[in-house]
Computed example of a mutant assay.
Amino acid sequence: MTAARFLVVLDADSTLIQDEVIELLADEAGRRAEVQAATEAAMRGDVDFATSLRSRVEALAGVGTDAFERVRVRIRPTPGVRELTAAVHQRGGVVGVVSGGFHEILDSIAPDLGVDRWRANRLAVVDGALSGRVDGAIVDAAAKASSLREWAGELDVPPAATIAIGDGANDLEMMSAAGLGVAFNAKPAVRASANLVVGPQDLREIIPLLP
C-alpha cells in the first residue's frame, strides 16, 4: 500500500450523501415514519446505535433486493463532494468512508464520488428478499474509530494528519480519534464535541482545512 500525505474519513448518510439510506429502504416497506424516528433518536445518541440498527433493519424484512436499484437512483450526493475528493487527491491524500449504512448501496455510489475505500454494514438476504437482519458485525461507533486508525496505519499517515467528518453520535469516537474532528450538518451533541463545526451543507467548505 502506497503511503499518503493525509487521510479524510467521512460518514456516509447525511454527510457524503444527503439521504439516510435506511429510510429510503423503509419507504419500500411502507414503514418510513417509524424508521425515521428511530434513526433520529440514534443520531442524537438517545439509544444505542447497534440496538437501534437491528430494530430498524427488522422493519425492512420482506423487501425484495430489486429495491436496491430504486434506492440508488434516489440518492442525492452532498453538494461539493466531488470537489472535495478531487482536492484531497490533488494534495496526495486518501478519502475513506465508514458507514452505519449498507454496502449494497455504498458499493455503487462510493467510486463515482471519488472515495478510495469504504466500510459499511451488510443486509442478510433470503430467497431474494431482506430477512430483517444484519449480516455480520455491525459497524458502530467503535468500528468507525478503529477503521480510521486501521486505514491510517496502512497508509503510514500519522494520527495528526487525519480528518474525520460526521453528523451523528455514532461518529463521535471516530472524530475523537482523528487529528481534526469536523461536525458537518450535525446534531447538537456532535457540534458540541467537535473540533470544528461546518454549517453550510456543502463539502467544499472542508477544502481549506486540508493539509
Rank of each mutant, 00 (worst) to 15 (best):
A59I: 00
L130E: 10
G114H: 04
D135V: 06
S193W: 04
P79Q: 06
D140S: 10
A137H: 10
E150C: 11
T162M: 02
L24M: 05
S55G: 13
W118L: 00
A183I: 02
N170A: 00
R74Q: 15
I105H: 06
L203M: 12
A26D: 01
E83F: 00
L60E: 04
R32E: 08
F68Y: 15
G100N: 03
L209N: 09
V81P: 11
L113A: 03
E205L: 04
E69M: 05
E40P: 03
L180F: 12
L172F: 02
L16F: 08
G100T: 05
S52H: 12
N121L: 12
R70M: 03
E150Y: 12
S108F: 13
M43R: 01
E173V: 11
S146M: 06
A61I: 03
V115A: 02
L203F: 01
V197S: 04
R82M: 10
A61S: 14
G96P: 08
W151R: 08
V9Q: 06
R76D: 09
R76Q: 15
L123T: 11
S176G: 12
G62W: 01
W151I: 05
D171P: 07
V57M: 04
T15I: 02
N185D: 11
P208I: 09
H103T: 14
I109Y: 01
A161C: 10
R133N: 12
V98G: 09
T2I: 12
V98R: 05
Q36H: 14
A137E: 14
L10E: 10
V73F: 02
A3K: 13
P159M: 07
R76F: 04
G153Y: 07
V126W: 08
E23I: 00
D156G: 13
A192S: 13
L16G: 09
M174C: 09
V197M: 01
V63R: 01
R32K: 14
A124M: 12
F184A: 07
D202N: 14
L172C: 05
L123M: 10
A38F: 07
R56P: 11
L203E: 09
A194M: 12
A164L: 07
R149D: 14
D127A: 15
L24K: 02
V126A: 15
R54H: 14
E40M: 13
S52T: 00
A143Q: 14
D167L: 01
G181H: 07
V97H: 10
R91P: 09
A4N: 04
Q201N: 09
G92F: 08
V81F: 03
M175C: 03
G179W: 11
A152R: 03
G136I: 04
P158C: 07
E154Q: 15
D135C: 09
A177K: 09
G80D: 01
E69W: 09
A120T: 08
T85Q: 02
A192P: 08
L203D: 11
S131D: 12
D171N: 08
R133S: 14
A12W: 13
D156T: 12
D135M: 09
W151Y: 03
A12S: 15
R91Y: 09
R204Y: 00
A38Y: 08
